[in-house]
Write a protein that binds this DNA or RNA. Structure first.
Lengths: 286, 286
DNA sequence: GATGAAGAAGAAAATAATTTTCATCATTTT
DNA sequence: AAAATGATGAAAATTATTTTCTTCTTCATC
């Protein structure tokens, strides 16, 4: 079980009463729900159309239609087609560990791709392309993803910075402005340091992009452009491993799209930086 | 190819002119089409909303919405149906880019798992567990992997260091000795800076581990314990993206194995570090 | 070649669906 | 207990979709 239904299950208990009822109905009758109009769904679940509409948008879908389509896409994949996420416990054999991690990573990549909103990707690509300066925020594991993204952007001549230090993140955010981009990475979407930096950047007029786990969270709520990476089930140990892979996967798609859409601008730079590294080594006597 | 798209292709030539145009557009931009409203689709395909509506109903769908949902469901392919590695060129659509990267990453993870030598993994786990100090070497993209590995090791109380700076790598390697571990990450297996550091560590008596692409290469030749991550086909552009994912995958397996085999030693530490981060934040007033 | 029948297609009207606004009610805070 | 906050549904506004109606084209027949 993954994605939308998973997010519903996790967030159900933090919802308003009627929204909980609605979430419960959808969880129990998902296959039926996707065929219902908003009014029908409201009727069947004992709520109102207004509540359903608000519900979808509070889960950060663009509309009820958007929600319904993404749910439908999620439901077509028969559960049997792919093994689901597996947790890791003490005393497993090496083989079962490798197997479980493989399953988690594969799943997390395909879930992420499936739920990727290409319109948002396009917007992110455009924002990055047009950006004067790019700031990347992320702590711990997500800091790594931010760093990876920075490396890629620098290689194509973008002015991109990542600060592992949370004070420097804020300091840097303070000097952003219109035409700049602030890109926040956070598995939970609630990391305070990352949130602060993004908020600061937004207040200065920078375009904000978020890459968080699926579902409503404070960081993506703040962002102009919202990207999501699949999350493991709540309570799963070390969910950040799969999440980090999924986030990198999204970064790869972004970067490749950026390259592909502006091939002539960037590819020569990339080639050049590769050659220069080689040349520099030769000069040192290799 | 199946269902709706197949039907469109077959029936296309028995349709009215505008419907043919519409069918053609949908066949060419299926993934885009499912995100469009009836008016948008009509606009993009050079027809009218009325035509689109009639088109859907003449194909025996209940409504445009019904058509759109079923098409969306059809476009989600099961993992098994995905092709092998794909290269990325200029001017691809976002969808094909996302698809290609997904395919590469999925493939690279399963290849890596399949070819993983669990005996070597076991040896690496033991070496890491027994290590007094662990040095991690890697440049650029592989530096990220090294950094990720360091983060994990530190969280379970290991003395692990990663230096992005090649001079510091050597400096640090110089002070290693028997009972220490030097772990080299390199996509190509030929990165001179990483090779130098590993060589230096080996000469001082440290146990050496390598994580490189498959096949003979100087770094793995030097290492006592050899791990491999799948590489994309030769000549593939930007193979380091998939390779990095594969390397992280191996790191995850290593780390999880380490945890699982010494559960009682490490898991409390991990739990503790997690709680401390939370507590520290609270004290700052959150 | 003119005439009319049949059907294709878009404009506009009608209908339906969705979102937003607004008023009400319940709950919590002061 | 009063005020403030927030949840909710009714209704209004907006938006999307379908149907109707009209025009235009094509093709068969005279």
């Amino acid at each position: 079980m993954s994605g939308i239904l998973q997010a519903l299950r996790e967030q159900q208990h933090h919802m308003n009463p009627k929204e909980q009822i609605l979430a419960q109905f959808i969880l129990e009758h998902a296959h039926e729900a996707v065929h219902l109009s908003i009014t029908e769904l409201a009727g069947r679940s004992g709520t109102s159309a207004a509540t359903v509409s608000r519900f979808c948008r509070s889960l950060l879908f663009k509309s009820y239609g958007d929600f319904r389509m993404k749910l439908a896409a999620e439901l077509v994949q028969p559960v049997s087609a792919k093994p689901s996420y597996q947790d890791i416990v003490a005393g497993n054999t090496l083989h079962s560990i490798a197997q479980a991690i493989e399953t988690n990573h594969l799943r997390s990549i395909s879930d992420t791709t499936r739920q990727l909103d290409l319109t948002e990707v396009q917007r992110a690509v455009d924002a990055l392309h047009d950006a004067r300066r790019i700031d990347l925020y992320g702590m711990a594991t997500s800091g790594m993803v931010a760093y990876d993204c920075q490396q890629k952007l620098v290689r194509i001549g973008k002015m991109a910075q990542h600060w592992a230090d949370s004070h420097m993140q804020i300091t840097s955010a303070t000097s952003l402005g219109e035409g700049d981009v602030a890109f926040a990475f956070s598995y939970s979407g609630e990391t305070p340091e990352t949130l602060d930096a993004l908020l600061c950047a937004k207040e200065r007029g920078a375009t904000t992009i978020s890459l968080t786990k699926f579902g409503a969270n404070r960081i993506s709520q703040l962002a102009d452009i919202r990207l999501y990476a699949s999350s493991l089930e709540e309570g799963m140990r070390r969910g950040d491993m799969a999440s980090r892979i999924a986030q990198l996967h999204v970064v790869d798609i972004l970067f490749t799209a950026l390259l592909s859409l502006h091939f002539d601008d960037y590819v020569p730079l990339l080639e050049q930086s590769f050659q220069e590294v080689k040349k520099y080594r030769k000069e040192k006597g290799r």
